[in-house]
């Protein structure tokens, strides 16, 4: 009942519900036709500034509204940088952008192909691109290659999970108490910039060439990335929201679950995304220097064995792995944060 009174079609209260709905519908149509009129010239004029985000943040479009609704153009009446309208505009431009990007990749490969031919660099040390790519494709059919990829990914995944769980739990505990935050601040700020590779000799002494030594490096490096983000996130909790939750009688765990956790989640995801890249770097580093089995160790042995084509193929493979991990983390972040306004407003093209 109270819900009805809050609706916009308030004057028509008392009439049959069907009438009121019709009235709302009529108003909505009027609004949307006005909006299209007003925007007619606007879209064309503003196509070029569609990347400027600053102006349009307060006029966030409503994703549920119809395409032609005024909600898509915001309170200023100009086309917003987001929403379906932008998606349409971007799709048109997207083709050209993709073609240019592909041209850039092809140009880079051509340069690589031609460099050894010109004799500027020794063809033995920099084989032409087609040989390295051929080597990569041959690798795709080899069991050894996939075993190495599996070893690398295993160290990556286990290290990430340990670091993320540790950092999230500790971050929430430290972050939710002012005393603990002040108490640990100096230690965290001191330990965080210590480069993880400084621990390589220690890892070798303690664990030898086992997977534990790469895990130790990965966990140390990723832990700080995630912990700092969790601390920022927990500190970012809105005081009004927290007080509201408290006066509604939510217990400490409910407040953690429904207030702190949703606020901190975007920060946690940022931390995890950064940590994913760092974890791959350290997994490969450990294999390269310590000799833990994996892609890095394969690269080191290909290099010392003078098998340069295979070395370049493996370097390409690690790059592809990095790109895939970045893409996957971005998709996961988008999925998990699909409810968050920063993700909702940018409609994927």
């Amino acid at each position: 009942m109270t819900d009805e009174r809050a609706r916009p079609g308030r004057r028509s209260r008392g009439k049959a519900p069907l009438d009121r709905d019709a009235e709302i519908h009529r108003l909505h149509r009027w609004e949307s036709s006005a909006a299209t009129d007003r925007r007619g010239g606007d879209i064309r004029r503003h196509t070029d500034v569609s990347t400027s985000a600053a102006l349009d943040i307060p006029t966030r479009p409503d994703p549920a509204a119809p395409l032609s609704s005024v909600a898509q153009s915001g309170a200023t009446g100009r086309a917003t940088t987001s929403g379906p309208g932008r998606a349409r505009r971007r799709r048109r431009r997207g083709l050209g952008t993709k073609a240019l990007g592909a041209a850039g990749v092809v140009g880079m490969l051509l340069t690589w192909e031609l460099l050894p031919l010109t004799g500027l660099v020794n063809a033995r040390f920099l084989p032409p691109a087609h040989e390295a790519i051929g080597g990569l494709i041959t690798n795709f059919g080899l069991t050894d290659f996939w075993v190495a990829v599996g070893d690398t990914m295993q160290a990556w995944a286990v290290g990430m999970i340990i670091a993320v769980v540790l950092a999230t739990v500790l971050g929430f505990i430290i972050g939710s108490s002012t005393f603990l935050r002040r108490f640990t601040n100096s230690t965290i700020e001191f330990l965080r910039p210590v480069p993880s590779v400084a621990l390589i000799p220690l890892a070798v002494l303690l664990f030898g060439v086992g997977i534990e030594s790469s895990l130790m490096l990965i966990v140390y490096a990723c832990f700080w990335q995630v912990l700092i983000q969790v601390l920022y996130g927990v500190a970012d909790v809105d005081a009004v929201a927290m007080n509201t939750a408290r006066s509604y009688g939510l217990g400490p765990f409910a407040r953690m679950r429904y207030v702190t956790f949703p606020t901190a989640l975007p920060y946690v995801m940022t931390g995890i995304r950064l940590a994913a890249a760092v974890a791959l770097i350290l997994a490969i580093t450990a294999q390269l220097i310590i000799g833990t089995p994996g892609l890095g160790a394969e690269i080191a042995s290909a290099q010392s064995g003078g098998n340069y084509i295979s070395m370049y193929a493996l370097v390409l493979a690690t790059g592809l792995l990095g790109v895939l991990i970045n893409l996957a983390m971005r998709i996961i972040e988008r999925k998990i944060l699909s409810w968050h306004s920063s993700v909702r407003t940018e409609v994927a093209a």
């Binding site: 240019l100 990007g101 990749v105 040390f125 490969i284 390269l288 340069y308 370097v315 790059g319 592809l320």
Partner: peptide, 28 residues
């Protein structure tokens, strides 16, 4: 246009873990 041309290539270079460049640069 320059951004569109170079962005995918740059993203790939950034994704390569930098330590694997050491053997490559040692060769070159």
């Amino acid at each position: 246009w320059l951004r569109a041309l170079l962005e995918p290539t740059l993203e790939f270079f950034r994704a390569i873990p930098p330590p694997v460049l050491i053997p490559v640069i040692m060769l070159l």
